[in-house]
């Protein structure tokens, strides 16, 4: 009798102990789950997570860091960032150092990144995160939102400046029009090749709005990188829709919705959004 009582009382904990690791492994068993877990971990813990940004503005003249300065970082060592004949330079009490673009450098407990755009150098300062990040998560996976379609070539080559996922301005090249079907309705979306600075990569990307935008998802829209399937065939997987960085932190500039890329249907897939309190 004792043994039965023991077993029944402890069964949930016992099962949890045995099954939880299996369940956790199962949760991260698909590539998409693993991607999401990795990305959420990066958002929560990376020293240069967009959530950690405390300052973001174009560099115009010298930029002074420190308590009471233009970039008022409480407790940060005094420093001045300047454009010089030798490139970008950070002056502190300890001396001068060159500042590479698109990479983080430390300033006390803070990190500074100068993102290079076609129009300006943009300075972002990241502070140590002291409060836990509450990422809103993702819609559950929906296989119906994996849309295979055709990328129709543009009538004429075109390029235009645009904000990428990270709020950095780049020159996008028109890739064409992606045409596919969702729930028996045809969708047609403009796609651009958006270069990744410092690499040979240029991913065919759409920035789209849909019936969830402004409700469960980010109002201006979300980015989806198209996966090539061979020839003119591409896959638009809405489950992989990602927010621009401005969704995590209003310091980042937000891309404007791309003309013609607003769908009336609700695409309940991809990254969710909760409005900032401020």
């Amino acid at each position: 009798m004792y043994r039965v009582t023991f077993r029944t009382r402890h069964l949930p904990a016992l099962c949890a102990t045995l099954i939880a690791p299996l369940a956790l492994r199962a949760q991260a068993s698909t590539p998409l789950d693993a991607e999401r877990a990795d990305f959420a971990q990066w958002l929560r813990t990376s020293a240069s997570s967009p959530y950690a940004a405390v300052f973001h503005q174009p560099l115009a003249g010298d930029l002074v860091f420190g308590p009471g300065a233009q970039a008022a970082l409480s407790g940060a060592p005094g420093a001045t960032l300047s454009r010089t004949r030798r490139g970008l330079e950070l002056r502190t009490d300890e001396g001068r150092r060159a500042v590479p673009r698109n990479r983080d450098i430390p300033l006390g407990a803070w990190r500074i990144r100068v993102s290079s755009s076609s129009r300006a150098d943009v300075v972002t300062v990241f502070a140590p995160m002291t409060t836990p990040v509450d990422h809103p998560g993702w819609f559950p996976y929906d296989a119906d939102l994996v849309i295979d379609g055709e990328l129709r070539r543009p009538e004429a080559p075109a390029q235009r400046p645009m904000l990428g996922l990270d709020g950095v301005e780049v020159t996008g090249t028109l890739a064409g029009t992606f045409v596919g079907r969702v729930s028996d309705a045809e969708v047609s979306l403009t796609a651009y090749r958006i270069p990744v600075p410092g690499s040979e990569e240029a991913e065919v990307t759409v920035f789209l709005r849909d019936g969830t935008s402004g409700h469960e998802t980010y109002p201006p829209g979300r980015f989806v990188v198209l996966r090539p399937l061979g020839g003119a065939r591409y896959r638009l997987d809405v489950n992989r829709a990602r927010n621009p960085f401005c969704a995590y932190n209003p310091l980042f500039p937000c891309p404007l919705p791309w003309p013609g890329n607003t769908l009336s249907a609700r695409l309940e897939g991809g990254e969710l959004y909760e409005a900032h309190e401020n």
Partner: peptide
Amino acid sequence: AGVNDDESPNATQP
């Protein structure tokens, strides 16, 4: 001499 971003090498080699 500097860092390997887009601008620094040109800026330091006028």
